[in-house]
């Protein structure tokens, strides 16, 4: 995977709480056997009337020409519900590299990290500051720097605001270097086999 370093971009504000996986990518689009092409169905039923691509819903932010960029900003509990990784593939395929929220659902967060889509958790107050700044001036950019774990809101004609975000050291190293968990786990196979011999679990006899 391509390593993540610093990303500066305008952002798309999706001021909705509890955005669930069925909205991000409805189940009927999970029939593919590859990881490609999910972006066109991202937020499908919020984007189009009656599932019709020639009828974009004007009130949905992805259809608002004012907003674009590699960063999606969403309200709390983003990615709740299903475990479908197709949601992370869809966001990434659409062109997002970062999702910002005050709170991510567990499985979504893991799926995002495994696809080098960076979930950045910010405080409630910083989140509302970001929403306000973007609504006021859609050309406002955000800078996410993984190495320093900082997110900066580059306000127009005002001082920038910065917050530090959390990420565990292991995952940060992976993302900065383009490693994934599977590379690491494969390097541990001998230890895993030794663990199996030692633990003698009944499970494996079934």
């Amino acid at each position: 995977m391509k390593a993540i370093t610093t990303i500066t971009s305008t952002a798309v504000p999706l001021d909705e709480e509890n955005v669930d996986m069925d909205q991000i990518i409805p189940a009927r689009f999970l029939k593919a056997t590859s990881r490609d092409g999910f972006g066109k169905n991202l937020f499908r039923d919020w984007r189009y009337e009656n599932d019709n691509e020639s009828l974009p819903r004007k009130d949905f932010v992805l259809n608002d020409p004012k907003f674009h960029g590699r960063i999606l900003v969403a309200a709390k509990n983003f990615g709740c519900g299903s475990s479908r990784e197709h949601a992370a593939w869809a966001l990434k395929d659409y062109g997002f590299d970062v999702v910002i929220s005050s709170f991510f659902a567990d499985i979504f967060k893991n799926n995002a990290l495994n696809n080098f889509l960076l979930p950045v958790t910010v405080s409630e107050s910083f989140l509302s500051e970001i929403f306000k700044a973007i609504e006021l001036a859609p050309s406002t950019t955000l800078t996410v720097d993984l190495a320093s774990q900082t997110i900066t809101l580059n306000k127009i004609k005002q001082p920038a605001a910065t917050e530090i975000f959390d990420i565990n050291h292991y995952k940060k190293t992976c993302l900065l270097n383009g490693y994934d968990d599977i590379d690491y786990l494969l390097s541990m196979k001998d230890e895993i086999a030794a663990f199996e011999n030692k633990s003698n679990m009944h499970a494996r006899t079934i």
Partner: peptide, 18 residues
């Protein structure tokens, strides 16, 4: 617990998860 597809691949390959 439920996992994503990358994690399905990890478990298939190593029987482990991070």
């Amino acid at each position: 617990f439920g996992i994503g597809t990358s994690e399905v691949e990890m478990v298939l390959a190593t029987q482990c998860l991070m």
